[in-house]
Amino acid sequence: MSDQEAKPSTEDLGDKKEGEYIKLKVIGQDSSEIHFKVKMTTHLKKLKESYCQRQGVPMNSLRFLFEGQRIADNHTPKELGMEEEDVIEVYQEQTGGHSTV
């Protein structure tokens, strides 16, 4: 019986991991920090939209990076291997420009 009891508790931990929340720091170019608590399985588009709304800027005017890689709207913290207190960097999107060649 103890084996049966242990097995469901392991499964519960697996389920808990799926719905687990982590805190992420979003740091802007001006070094301002906003902290977000997100589920591991939530699409990061929600975090990006919330950040842009707080900053009063359109979402397409900023780019969000985690460990140097651009974050897509459909990425989740779990897919990117994010952990508690990880940092997302935000930069002004640069458009235009010309070749110097």
Score class of each variant (00 low, 15 high):
1 M>G: 06
1 M>P: 06
1 M>V: 10
1 M>W: 06
1 M>T: 08
2 S>W: 12
2 S>A: 13
2 S>F: 12
2 S>K: 11
2 S>N: 12
2 S>M: 12
3 D>Q: 09
3 D>Y: 08
3 D>S: 11
3 D>V: 08
4 Q>H: 11
4 Q>F: 14
4 Q>K: 09
4 Q>E: 06
5 E>T: 13
5 E>P: 14
5 E>Q: 14
6 A>G: 15
6 A>L: 14
6 A>K: 08
6 A>N: 15
6 A>C: 14
6 A>R: 11
7 K>Y: 09
7 K>C: 06
7 K>L: 08
7 K>R: 12
7 K>I: 14
8 P>F: 12
8 P>E: 00
8 P>S: 11
8 P>A: 12
8 P>Y: 13
9 S>T: 12
9 S>F: 08
9 S>D: 15
10 T>A: 12
10 T>Q: 11
10 T>G: 07
10 T>K: 13
10 T>Y: 14
10 T>V: 14
11 E>A: 12
11 E>V: 11
11 E>Q: 08
11 E>F: 06
11 E>N: 05
11 E>M: 14
12 D>L: 10
12 D>R: 13
13 L>V: 12
13 L>N: 11
13 L>P: 10
13 L>G: 09
13 L>R: 13
13 L>W: 10
13 L>K: 13
14 G>L: 14
14 G>D: 12
15 D>H: 14
15 D>Y: 08
15 D>E: 12
16 K>M: 12
16 K>N: 11
16 K>G: 11
16 K>I: 11
16 K>W: 06
16 K>H: 14
16 K>P: 12
16 K>Y: 10
17 K>I: 08
17 K>T: 15
17 K>M: 10
17 K>W: 11
17 K>E: 14
18 E>C: 05
19 G>R: 14
19 G>P: 10
19 G>W: 08
19 G>H: 10
19 G>Q: 10
19 G>A: 11
19 G>D: 12
20 E>D: 11
20 E>R: 14
20 E>M: 12
20 E>P: 15
21 Y>F: 14
21 Y>R: 09
21 Y>K: 11
21 Y>V: 09
21 Y>I: 10
21 Y>N: 09
21 Y>P: 11
22 I>H: 05
22 I>P: 07
22 I>M: 12
22 I>G: 05
23 K>M: 09
23 K>N: 09
23 K>P: 01
24 L>S: 00
24 L>Y: 01
24 L>K: 06
25 K>N: 11
25 K>P: 04
25 K>M: 03
25 K>F: 03
25 K>W: 01
26 V>P: 15
26 V>C: 12
26 V>Q: 05
26 V>K: 04
27 I>F: 10
27 I>H: 15
27 I>N: 09
27 I>P: 02
28 G>N: 07
28 G>L: 00
28 G>W: 07
29 Q>M: 05
29 Q>T: 05
29 Q>N: 15
29 Q>R: 14
29 Q>Y: 07
29 Q>H: 08
29 Q>A: 10
30 D>F: 04
30 D>P: 06
30 D>K: 05
30 D>E: 08
30 D>G: 13
31 S>W: 15
31 S>E: 06
31 S>F: 15
31 S>I: 08
31 S>Y: 15
31 S>M: 00
31 S>G: 10
32 S>I: 10
32 S>F: 06
32 S>V: 15
34 I>K: 03
34 I>V: 12
34 I>P: 04
34 I>Y: 04
36 F>K: 00
36 F>D: 04
36 F>E: 00
36 F>L: 02
37 K>D: 05
37 K>A: 13
38 V>D: 03
38 V>L: 12
39 K>D: 02
39 K>N: 08
39 K>C: 05
39 K>Q: 09
40 M>S: 11
40 M>W: 00
40 M>A: 06
41 T>Y: 00
41 T>V: 00
41 T>H: 05
41 T>S: 12
42 T>D: 06
42 T>P: 03
42 T>K: 06
42 T>C: 08
43 H>Y: 09
43 H>W: 05
43 H>M: 11
43 H>E: 13
44 L>G: 02
44 L>K: 03
44 L>D: 03
45 K>S: 10
45 K>H: 10
45 K>T: 05
45 K>Y: 05
46 K>G: 02
46 K>H: 12
46 K>A: 11
47 L>M: 08
47 L>D: 04
47 L>C: 01
48 K>R: 01
48 K>H: 00
48 K>M: 06
48 K>L: 02
48 K>V: 02
49 E>N: 03
49 E>Y: 05
49 E>T: 00
49 E>C: 00
49 E>W: 00
49 E>M: 09
49 E>S: 14
49 E>L: 07
49 E>V: 08
50 S>W: 11
50 S>M: 13
51 Y>N: 05
51 Y>H: 02
52 C>R: 05
52 C>N: 01
52 C>Q: 03
52 C>T: 02
53 Q>V: 09
53 Q>N: 07
53 Q>F: 15
53 Q>P: 10
54 R>P: 00
54 R>Q: 13
54 R>D: 04
54 R>W: 00
54 R>Y: 02
55 Q>C: 13
55 Q>F: 07
55 Q>E: 12
55 Q>A: 10
56 G>L: 05
56 G>P: 00
56 G>V: 04
56 G>Q: 14
56 G>R: 07
57 V>F: 05
57 V>A: 13
57 V>T: 04
57 V>D: 03
57 V>S: 05
58 P>V: 00
59 M>I: 11
59 M>P: 11
59 M>R: 11
60 N>L: 04
60 N>K: 06
60 N>W: 08
60 N>A: 06
60 N>T: 05
60 N>S: 11
61 S>T: 08
61 S>C: 08
62 L>S: 04
62 L>C: 14
62 L>W: 01
62 L>P: 02
62 L>V: 15
62 L>K: 06
62 L>A: 00
63 R>M: 07
63 R>T: 06
63 R>Y: 09
63 R>D: 00
64 F>D: 02
64 F>E: 00
64 F>V: 02
64 F>L: 05
64 F>C: 04
64 F>Q: 06
64 F>G: 02
64 F>S: 02
64 F>K: 02
65 L>F: 08
65 L>H: 14
65 L>Y: 15
65 L>A: 03
65 L>K: 00
66 F>M: 04
67 E>D: 08
67 E>M: 14
68 G>F: 01
69 Q>A: 14
69 Q>D: 12
69 Q>W: 06
69 Q>V: 05
70 R>L: 12
70 R>D: 09
70 R>H: 15
70 R>S: 15
71 I>Y: 01
71 I>C: 00
71 I>W: 01
72 A>L: 14
72 A>P: 07
73 D>V: 01
73 D>T: 04
74 N>R: 14
74 N>P: 05
74 N>M: 07
74 N>H: 08
75 H>S: 13
75 H>Q: 12
76 T>Q: 01
76 T>V: 01
76 T>I: 00
76 T>A: 02
77 P>V: 01
77 P>F: 02
77 P>A: 07
77 P>C: 13
78 K>T: 05
78 K>E: 13
78 K>G: 15
79 E>V: 15
79 E>Q: 07
79 E>C: 04
79 E>A: 06
79 E>K: 10
80 L>Q: 01
80 L>P: 01
80 L>W: 02
81 G>Q: 12
81 G>K: 06
81 G>C: 13
82 M>Q: 01
83 E>S: 14
83 E>L: 14
83 E>G: 13
84 E>R: 13
84 E>I: 00
84 E>Y: 11
85 E>K: 15
85 E>Y: 14
85 E>L: 14
86 D>L: 01
86 D>K: 04
86 D>N: 14
86 D>C: 12
86 D>I: 02
86 D>E: 10
87 V>F: 14
87 V>G: 07
87 V>H: 09
87 V>W: 06
88 I>K: 02
88 I>E: 03
89 E>Q: 05
89 E>Y: 14
89 E>A: 07
89 E>W: 15
89 E>I: 13
89 E>F: 10
90 V>A: 14
90 V>C: 12
91 Y>I: 00
91 Y>A: 06
91 Y>G: 05
92 Q>S: 13
93 E>D: 10
93 E>Q: 11
93 E>L: 07
94 Q>D: 05
94 Q>V: 13
94 Q>N: 05
95 T>E: 03
95 T>K: 03
95 T>A: 12
95 T>W: 14
95 T>D: 00
96 G>M: 05
96 G>V: 00
96 G>I: 01
96 G>C: 05
97 G>Y: 03
97 G>S: 02
97 G>E: 01
97 G>M: 00
98 H>F: 10
99 S>V: 09
99 S>T: 11
99 S>D: 08
99 S>P: 08
100 T>L: 09
100 T>A: 10
100 T>W: 07
100 T>M: 09
101 V>D: 06
101 V>H: 06
